[in-house]
Simulated assay, not measured.
Amino acid sequence: MSELKDALADIEAIRRRMAAGTVFKGFGPLALGATALVALATATIQNVFPPGTPLAFFVAWIVAAVLCAALIAAETVVRTGRTHGGLADAMLHQAIQHFLPAGVAGGVFAAVIGRFSPDSAWLIPGLWQVLVGLGVFAAAPSLPKGAVLGAAWYFVCGFGVMMMMAARPGELSPWGMALPFAIGQTILALVVRRAAENGYDEI
């Protein structure tokens, strides 16, 4: 029995090594592009119906983020199973490992600011963008080469938005959230689409 367990452990280790050296093909341009539209729609709604409090502002964006994550996850699971076959589970696990720390950090940071320093809420939009950039940078070795452009965009925009918000710390701009995210997701969608056209995927 122990020999069987050792053999299964060896197989799993091989699968993980293979996954680490394989380009992840689970992300698709359709869901990435749709998330850009979700961001623009959220900003438009907030522009027409301004949220009365910072809490309302961020609740709307948290809902938008959950919707975007659901769209990406649904397409990713389907595409990963189709394109990676027996490595699908290992590839999904690797992708989660890349992005989960940044996502958890963003959520915890927002909760801490909301609970202990609500006057500093203006930091959150820029920080979220920096964390998205770091998540994409972390996953870059497993993504098409052009993905680093999207990561760099988020990273630079995050600090730019923080500087913009610092000049008007009492204001929370929906477009300061939406435009960087919409452009960043569009960049990633175009990178994935171009990679697919060059043989990244079987469509």
Rank of each mutant, 00 (worst) to 15 (best):
S2E: 15
E3Y: 10
E3G: 05
E3R: 12
D6I: 04
A7T: 12
D10H: 05
I11A: 10
I11G: 02
I11N: 06
R16T: 11
A19T: 02
A20C: 05
V23H: 07
K25L: 02
F27M: 11
G28P: 07
P29Y: 03
L30R: 14
G33H: 01
A34C: 09
A36D: 01
L37Y: 00
A41V: 15
I45K: 04
Q46D: 05
N47S: 15
F49S: 14
P50F: 04
P51V: 04
G52W: 02
P54H: 09
P54V: 08
F57N: 07
F58G: 03
V59E: 09
V59P: 06
V59D: 09
W61L: 04
V63G: 04
A65L: 13
A65K: 10
V66G: 09
V66T: 14
V66E: 10
L67N: 03
L67Q: 04
A69W: 07
A70Q: 07
L71M: 13
L71Q: 06
L71F: 12
A74N: 12
A74W: 10
T76V: 05
V77P: 05
R82A: 05
H84R: 04
H84C: 06
A88C: 11
A88P: 14
A90F: 03
A90C: 03
L92C: 08
L92M: 14
Q94W: 08
A95F: 05
A95H: 03
H98A: 15
F99D: 04
P101G: 01
A105I: 07
G107N: 01
F109Q: 04
V112K: 06
I113E: 06
P118N: 00
D119I: 10
S120D: 11
S120R: 08
P125F: 09
W128D: 06
L131G: 05
L134Q: 07
V136F: 09
V136Q: 02
P144L: 00
K145P: 03
G146E: 01
G146V: 01
A152T: 15
Y154V: 02
Y154K: 00
F155S: 08
F155L: 13
V156M: 00
C157H: 01
C157G: 03
G158A: 03
M163C: 13
A166W: 07
P169T: 06
E171D: 14
L172C: 11
G176T: 11
M177C: 02
A178W: 09
I183C: 06
Q185C: 13
Q185M: 14
L188R: 08
A189M: 08
L190F: 11
L190G: 12
L190P: 12
V192E: 03
R193V: 08
A195W: 14
A196K: 11
D201Q: 14
D201V: 13
E202F: 13
I203F: 14
I203Q: 12
